[in-house]
Design a binder for these strands. Structure first.
Lengths: 215, 215
DNA sequence: GTTAAAATACGCAATTTAGCGTATTTTTTT
DNA sequence: AAAAAAATACGCTAAATTGCGTATTTTAAC
């Protein structure tokens, strides 16, 4: 059985999606959520879900934010965006957030079913209009460049230096040797870095630093 | 009538593609070419063509160069790449060259037919495995730069799955929960991964996996 | 020149990772 | 049907990381 969750703020559309899948016996709709926060709450209780069909425009927490969080906590869960809009921004953000596919709500039952199967097999699906936009984005690499929310974390020079060494996979005592410092100092720097970046381990720190172009 | 040209250096494959389309009456195979230069010559005589099904690996002039030239001379002609390989480099280069779609040769007749129609309607199509690679390239723009020696490490599916979770910054017990396994099992997988990749910690493993496009 | 920020350093405790061995069960291949 | 590979799981031990508190020295800012 394929365990699926539907996230949409419109109850009628929730139902419409469910109806499209009703005749495929191997698909089981485990639950429906009304918005991103609702989804997170429900996953917290039971994350035994294979795939999520996610709307984008929703109150409380939209589908893109929700995708980002779900993917960071449960990377094995596949997410297909299901939306009425196909504007570039949403597509781009969804992909960045980690969506595994992108369909328009007008998709027919067979296509939706097929999309679910292909996604679980490890592929990705997009409606042709979305695929086209994806290709266009590809041919315009400058669109990649502007990452808007370049937050300010006020890392010091030394902290950045330590972070750079961390990102090479070095352990504290190697970094200490490299910078002619004590291991205790490195530890303290790391601690301060974690506080500033609001993370709790090397990898998260490196990822956050990279996505904010600190290193 | 939809006027189609087939470009492939292998006569048997040319025929195989033609056969897939034989029962769709609105599709007319106007001509077949054996390589890029042959195609250009034939287009020079008659460019009244709607769409080209293009192989990549070919003598004289490969499909990517041919695509670039055709698109610059006859931008209205749609081009779908049809290839046996789905390596990142070919996909990327084809897109840059202006291809409107990318299919694997194993595509079945209905899908191929549908792809042609969708492409002529102004959309784009990709097989799910290609679409996935496209998404991954999107999320890792640094992968655009060239691909070095892709070594073989023989990681199993499960090991890759664990590695992917590791790469999100999850700790062993979260991974265990996500995959419904014991922490001991995760530890063992990680150990085996490290042995195969010849590394000694998370970060090195992730870096090696990424640079070899395992994840 | 005083103040604030940054860099340095240690100690303690708890958690997480890593390395090695062993063993059973399940799946795949031959 | 037998053999090989993959997936599962646990125990022991050591090493490394993380979190928190405290404190001194150096550098930069006012």
């Amino acid at each position: 059985m394929i365990k699926v969750a539907i996230v949409d703020d419109n109850t009628f559309l929730q139902k419409a999606i469910q109806d499209k899948l009703i005749f495929f016996n191997e698909i089981e709709i485990k639950f429906k959520a009304n918005h991103g926060q609702d989804l997170l709450d429900k996953l917290d209780k039971n994350h035994n879900i294979d795939l999520i069909l996610m709307d984008i425009e929703m109150p409380k927490m939209n589908g893109i934010e929700a995708t980002e969080i779900v993917k960071s906590k449960y990377p094995q869960i596949k997410i297909i965006m299901l939306t009425v809009f196909d504007n570039d921004e949403n597509i781009f953000k969804s992909i960045k957030a980690g969506a595994d596919g992108y369909l328009l709500k007008e998709v027919n039952p067979e296509e939706l079913h097929n999309a679910i199967l292909e996604t679980l097999k490890g592929g990705a699906i997009m409606t042709p209009s979305i695929a086209l936009k994806t290709l266009k984005l590809f041919r315009n690499p400058e669109l990649f460049e502007d990452i808007p929310n370049q937050e300010e974390y006020n890392l010091t020079t030394r902290e950045i230096e330590v972070l750079e060494q961390l990102s090479k996979g070095l352990k504290y005592n190697s970094i200490a040797e490299n910078l002619f410092l004590s291991v205790g100092t490195i530890r303290k720097h790391v601690e301060n870095i974690y506080n500033k970046l609001q993370v709790h381990n090397k990898l998260e720190a490196i990822q956050k630093a990279k996505s904010n172009k600190i290193i």
